[in-house]
Amino acid sequence: MSAWLTQHRAALAGAFRRLFVAPMSTVLSLLVIGIALTLPALGYVLLDNLRELGSRASGVKQISVFMEPGASRKEADEIASQLRQAGDLNWRFVPREEALQRLQQTEGMAEIVASLPRNPLPDAFIVEPQDTGPAALEALSQELAGWPKVAHVQLDSAWVKRFDAFLRLGRLALALLAGLFAAGLVAVTFNTIRLQVMAQAAEIEVARMIGATDAFIRRPFYYYGALQGALGGLLAAVLVLAGLRLLAGPVGELATLYGTAFALQAPAASGAAVLATGGALLGWLGAQLSVSLSLRRFD
């Protein structure tokens, strides 16, 4: 066991040394890997922020439940009791007096409201479900429409469906982009490792002549590919954070112009670990393919 650990430790140390043998080549390779991982990662972060912005937009995923004009407060209390029993709903009651007061405060509506002989607005409930998927919102709105003394249920289901379809299309496009860049990352690692194997061809021949196993020969290259991919993933995390910092100011100003407050949310620390792990796996895969094909020449 100690011999196995010693061999792995030596292979890892050798991989670190290779990074500093040709620093310019290493920097360029890390930049290529970092950029390849940055673009899809930044896209996912921005899409997640867009989803958050869409969910926070006023009335986007709210269901407005309007009572019949002649419904009494007792009947409204019965609807409130049913909403409490539902459990997974956030809701608030808007009495007709409050609705009329808000309408009166709207620009140009004060004189019109004052001329009305009575309050024509009904009591209403604003319902915000936990499950904001289009299908769940549609089902809930249909259920609410069947409750007693409910005259109308309003949900902009078309907007919700369009927004959800846009998010799904964005995720699919990013998945395809991530797949293309992952293939490019594997190709970069493949070529880098192939050149190193060719440069050390004489050493590999001697090592095999004195009894070195294929696993012993392959191990340093595997570690090098994984290490290079992991460092590229960490560089991608830094680039994503830098990109979000640059975009934070313009996005905040744009949100202010639309009368809202919104700030781009940076990914959690686990995001950097995911990028580093993904880069290491892709680097290891590229190294594995390159070493396997290159060593066939020696056979």
Rank of each mutant, 00 (worst) to 15 (best):
L231H: 00
A230H: 02
L176I: 15
G229H: 01
D164T: 13
R9G: 15
L195P: 07
A80D: 04
V186L: 15
Q130N: 14
L289G: 00
G59C: 10
A76W: 01
S64N: 11
G54E: 13
E97T: 09
D299Q: 06
D214I: 01
F298E: 04
L5T: 07
S25M: 12
A236F: 02
L116P: 01
A226F: 03
L37V: 13
L31A: 15
P23R: 11
A280Q: 06
R73L: 09
S115N: 10
D156V: 12
S141W: 00
G43Y: 07
V94R: 12
A114S: 10
F66K: 02
L241H: 09
I210H: 07
I63W: 04
Y222N: 07
V150M: 06
V186T: 13
A3G: 06
F221T: 01
I204A: 04
A86T: 10
D77L: 11
I63R: 03
L241F: 06
L144K: 08
S141Y: 01
D131Y: 11
T192V: 14
R56G: 14
T277D: 02
L31E: 02
L244A: 05
P117H: 02
A110Y: 00
R171F: 15
A215P: 01
G252F: 02
S270G: 09
L30W: 11
E97D: 13
L241S: 09
V45S: 15
R245D: 09
F93S: 10
P148S: 06
S55W: 00
L234V: 09
A263T: 10
A268E: 10
A145N: 06
R17I: 07
L39T: 12
A165K: 11
A80R: 15
A261R: 12
V45E: 15
I126K: 10
F16A: 14
A212I: 05
A236Q: 03
P120R: 06
A230L: 08
L83E: 03
A261K: 08
L174I: 13
E128L: 12
L89S: 09
A10L: 14
G252N: 05
R296E: 10
E68I: 05
P95R: 02
I63Q: 01
F216Y: 13
L83I: 04
V291R: 00
L47D: 11
Q7G: 15
A242N: 00
P134Q: 04
L180S: 14
Q82C: 00
G87V: 04
R56A: 15
